[in-house]
Nucleic acid binder design. Structure first.
Lengths: 215, 215
DNA sequence: CCATTAGTGCGACAACAGTTGCGTTAGAAT
DNA sequence: ATTCTAACGCAACTGTTGTCGCACTAATGG
């Protein structure tokens, strides 16, 4: 998970339903400018004052936009972060290709570890807000679904190299490799352990080699 | 994680610091009665109206106690759930002893699965609130620390039976076994999979047998 | 260019969260 | 029984969150 780039272009998808009687959306100049201003403000506010300082009022003030505008278009803080997430998901992320399954999973885990331990962590804020806001929860679930789908290439490459049997359950393997990281850093909130990403990756590989994800 | 029993006895520990100048606490009749009433109200309100319906005002009304009383003793909703958690941690929980490492871990995972999928889930509510309230986060971390410590006996028994080498990292093994469950049900919020507890337990055992948690 | 109206600004409002001061009630100690 | 005071009830208060009606601005289609 990475911090989305600056919001410049037109909005990818309005938070509302796509269209029913097509009330003639107008995504042009001002609307796009407002969205860019607001999402930039969200990012800046999050970096400067952390998740607790991320209120609708503060974002509206910083963006130079009225409170009601934010409430109408994004409903709440969850909606803001959800939109920020969809913007960030647009970039074409690819998992690293190190040549070995262990190397790929370790690289993946180091990315996860970095995104969760940076201060302040956009990823952690998104996870936290997903428990308050349904739109944020949906956006996060969609984001993760896409990320895990992209990561399946790591397993496919390992199968192609003969490291794993063809019937390997890619998703289960990926979850086994990454879940301990999230468990420690998000749920247990234990102190960051620099060796954990590698150990978790190694554990998953050993389990895979023992046939834990086959058949 | 299980739902704590009814609050009847005297409070185990006041939410404040234990004592500094010992201002003569009085944990007797009314104080204990109030705590029992309030914590019962928290549990009932959580079950009936879910986490979103769990406001200080609603709890105070249901308990037949004034708002300020709740604010003064528990600060906020997080404090209420934190106290409920410490109450639940008082019972002498023990992991099941099925005779095999795989059986023990699977039984453990089924307990976790049940507590997270019941509707509404007190466990899920506690995790959610731990992102808003520092006291709740502390209480939850303490609870988990204790639970994982208790579960280490599962690993010790397996070592005693010769299933695992003596230098096995019990905590890492337990996390590997349970983390995928929390990952799916709490973070990814995917649909409950009845087979997941067994599969996750099996994966951890295979990894352990391959030496993933040794040395 | 003009007409339409989505999107925005503004102010007033309701609902809720949380605090404070003060008087009252009821454990606990003498 | 009397005293002391922790814990509670009560009311009034502040600040924040979120909504609503109305006027206005500017993007879009003709």
């Amino acid at each position: 998970m990475r911090t989305p780039r600056t919001a410049t272009g037109t909005p990818s998808a309005p938070p509302r339903e796509p269209e029913r009687a097509a009330p003639a959306r107008r995504p042009g100049g001002r609307t796009a400018r407002t969205r860019a201003l607001v999402l930039d403000a969200v990012r800046a506010q999050l970096v400067e004052h952390g998740y607790d300082g991320l209120t609708v009022d503060a974002v509206a003030d910083r963006a130079g936009v009225h409170r009601t505008t934010v409430y109408r278009r994004w409903q709440d803080v969850g909606g803001l972060l959800a939109d920020l997430l969809t913007l960030g998901a647009e970039d074409d992320w690819r998992p690293a290709d190190t040549g070995t399954l262990l190397g790929d999973l370790a690289a993946l885990n180091h990315e996860v570890h970095a995104s969760l331990t940076e201060q302040p962590s956009v990823a952690a804020a998104l996870i936290a807000v997903s428990f308050r806001s349904a739109p944020a929860a949906d956006a996060l679930r969609g984001f993760w679904e896409e990320r895990y789908a992209q990561c399946e290439t790591v397993v496919e490459r390992a199968v192609a190299r003969g490291e794993l049997p063809a019937e390997t359950d890619a998703r289960a393997l990926l979850v086994a490799a990454t879940a301990p990281l999230y468990h420690h850093l998000v749920l247990l909130r234990s102190a960051p352990d620099p060796g954990l990403p590698d150990r978790a990756a190694r554990t998953a590989v050993l389990a895979a080699e023992a046939g834990a994800f086959s058949r």
